[in-house]
Design a protein around this nucleic acid. Structure first.
Lengths: 253, 253
DNA sequence: AACAATTTGTCCATATTGTGGAATTGATAA
DNA sequence: TTATCAATTCCACAATATGGACAAATTGTT
């Protein structure tokens, strides 16, 4: 992980435990966590209490724990303070109008990206369906787009070290092939993702750059395979217009 | 705050700092936080680093800190695992259809409630506008509804200790008056909130009870004053139908 | 460009906090 | 009621966080 300045180990453990509880499909009990987490009983007990008394987890009647509502409150602040989200909104809506398909905005978080906005076809009602979803760098449209805008050095480090786990049967797990896709993205400005992150879904992704040409976010258009048009320029043009507008400085390409 | 089992003080401090950063209007720098937070420089520095290396905050180019995208990822888990949210959804939509007004669902968090779902008029486009918002118990429709379903003993403790800060000029800050409103809510099953939490907005709130008649959530209908109908039964009936359906066990009233 | 001022980042001895084995309490089932 | 299993508490000890003082970096000024 990141630097770690000494003096934050116990905090990191608590957050790790929180993440574990969030990642589990079902709320775990202390006993289950004891198996899964390499903590001793009293330590785990105290960590859970710390998380609970902060409202980050809540204990159910069966003594199991699930993520608490305070997380939703904190996340609201994070969304509200995301300037790229505000800035991008109109442009994203335009992409949706031009393509008719779902548009995502993602920013880097940890080893991957997190969707912070989604514009989808008007029929869909359920909110938040994917905002907050974590996506790997190597398997998603936004991820590969982000990678393609990274300085050569960082990209090399990534390609040499990342596990490139298969997310679907179509995920690119070969660093050489991934590199080729990224190079292509660098030439044409956008990347194609054919069911690599989700079966049945193709994706077009492009990065948003800051004034130093560093990637700060990425946009994608997701298309169900059966609806995918032959002329992909329909998608890529809208996408490129969007990221050009949102990127600072001259866009040399 | 809650119990605190010893062994979690440093964690609580980190989360307190995170909350402070989330609550600030603008991203603070280390220097500003040093003024505001009663931490020494090295401590603050380490706490910030701990938060940052976990992705809970991110450092901007001007060295200031704002909430990070990982919070959004964690909150997604929390929303996804909220069974009351799933269970309530259809009923909430029905209330919106019957009243034409915005409907909120809130669950307890810390000293108040947090909105975990919102159904609003179809015209409104912007998502997430209020999901995640914290509301005090004494000034909101959902808050007073929740209070009204609390066991007498807990309610007394609350009324004796809570500061009852004015949120708007209309907020009820007198415990006696608040008690009267709550008693009325106990009789009729819902509570009225006239601009007490937000100027220009009236609210009808009602609690959702579990099988032991304990409140687990609350629903409200928010109506802009200028649109408020004279016959309030229009709102209360829809609301009462909704919470009856969502509450377990017999609803003695 | 050099200097000053302000802010961020680091070190290390020390005090505080968290740790975990073991005992206790509480809950559930027989 | 008793047995059984899990949750909770205790306390001496070890590991971690603390903060005064210092160093480095960044920014603004002449």
């Amino acid at each position: 992980m990141a630097k770690q300045v000494q003096g934050t180990q116990s905090f990191a453990r608590s957050i790790g435990l929180l993440q574990h509880i969030c990642d589990r499909r079902n709320p775990p009990t202390l006993a289950k966590l004891l198996d899964e987490c390499a903590f001793t009983r009293p330590t785990l007990y105290r960590l859970l209490n710390g998380l609970e008394s902060e409202g980050l987890i809540v204990q159910l009647k069966d003594k199991s724990y699930k993520p608490g509502p305070r997380l939703i409150n904190l996340a609201r602040s994070a969304l509200a303070k995301s300037d790229i989200r505000d800035r991008a909104r109109d442009a994203l809506v335009r992409v949706r109008e031009q393509t008719g398909e779902t548009v995502h905005l993602a920013v880097p978080s940890g080893e991957g990206l997190v969707y912070i906005d989604k514009i989808e076809s008007l029929e869909t009602v359920r909110m938040n369906s994917t905002i907050g979803t974590f996506v790997p760098l190597h398997s998603s449209g936004v991820g590969k787009a982000y990678l393609s805008a990274l300085p050569e050095e960082k990209l090399t480090v990534f390609l040499e070290n990342a596990p490139l786990e298969p997310i679907t049967p179509f995920t690119t797990t070969d660093p050489i092939k991934l590199r080729a896709q990224i190079n292509q993205c660098r030439r044409q400005g956008f990347v194609f993702d054919g069911q690599e992150n989700e079966a049945g879904i193709a994706c077009f992704g492009a990065p948003i750059l800051d004034e130093n040409a560093q990637p700060i976010a990425a946009v994608s258009v997701s298309v169900p395979l059966f609806r995918l048009k032959d002329e992909t320029s329909r998608y890529s043009t809208a996408l490129l217009d969007c990221v050009r507008e949102l990127s600072d400085g001259e866009f040399q390409r």
